[in-house]
């Protein structure tokens, strides 16, 4: 039992075995409270074992979903995605042939195909949704998880960066674009012959990797790991950790 009603919190013990790193004996007494962001129910929670999941009793939201070695996997998969995004942007993506005429386009050509007037805005949105934001998001995950996996203190502003990565999740639309390619293929099938370039396969692969990587990502575990890693900081002469500078006012 990973979650308990908050009034039974004495039953919980801390078994520090978070998904990243191992930090043994600290604050072994107080169990943490966790609130469900969707329905506001509060639970006491002990440290989960790898592979444990916690689901909110009331609304069914998955609050914790740990996986063995998740941090390392997300890190490796994110690096792969970043490499593939860059490579896919510059290789031929699709080519078309009809009656002796041909055309080859890259991913960036596709993303910037709206050129007239206000439609330029659609180009901007497309390039963000299929290249910019996915790349930014995996870069942010590497930036946050990398130092923690290496047993170092978290990178500067890791909290803000991870919060941004979480907020970007719905706006990173690589898999939607992949399905869009399949639809486009059918639409022109009577007009011309389409051929896939190497970038197409890279993009298809990275869409799958993004989905797999997100299945390993448990936001609660990463917040715990950031907090644990923060305690690795060498000298703690300052007061309590206030992230960034803007948290100071009022």
């Amino acid at each position: 039992m990973l979650l308990l009603p908050p009034d039974r919190r004495i039953l919980s013990y801390l078994v520090k075995e978070t998904l990243v790193g191992n930090a043994p004996e600290q604050n072994a007494a107080a169990p943490d409270l966790i609130g469900c962001p969707m329905c506001d129910e509060v639970y006491a929670v002990r440290q989960p074992h790898a592979g444990e999941r916690a689901v909110c009793d009331h609304c069914g939201t998955v609050l914790i979903a740990t996986r063995e070695g998740a941090g390392l996997r997300i890190l490796a998969l994110s690096i792969a995605v970043l490499v593939l995004v860059v490579a896919a942007s510059f290789h031929p993506f699709l080519s078309i042939n009809a009656a002796g005429l041909g055309n080859k386009v890259s991913l960036l050509d596709v993303a910037t195909s709206f050129r007239s007037g206000l439609l330029v805005l659609v180009s901007v949105a497309t390039i963000l949704l299929i290249v910019g934001l996915p790349a930014l998001r995996v870069a942010a995950l590497i930036y946050v998880i990398g130092p923690i996996e290496l047993g170092r203190p978290p990178a500067p502003r890791a909290r803000e960066v991870f919060r941004m990565a979480q907020a970007l999740k719905p706006w990173s639309m690589t898999e939607v674009f992949s399905i869009g390619c399949a639809v486009a293929l059918v639409k022109v099938s009577d007009l011309a012959r389409l051929e896939f370039g190497p970038a197409f396969w890279m993009f298809a692969a990275l869409s799958v990797i993004v989905v797999v990587s997100d299945r390993y990502l448990c936001s609660w575990s990463i917040w715990e790991a950031i907090e644990t890693a923060d305690q690795r900081r060498p000298a703690p002469p300052e007061s309590e950790p206030v992230s960034g500078s803007e948290g100071k006012h009022a």
């Binding site: 699709l94 078309i96 055309n103 386009v105 050509d109 596709v110 993303a111 910037t112 195909s113 709206f114 659609v122 180009s123 497309t126 869009g180 390619c181 486009a184 639409k187 022109v188 007009l191 011309a192 389409l194």
Partner: peptide, 8 residues
């Protein structure tokens, strides 16, 4: 986006 880039 794909069609307008490709079919030219």
């Amino acid at each position: 986006a794909i069609l307008s880039a490709l079919v030219q």
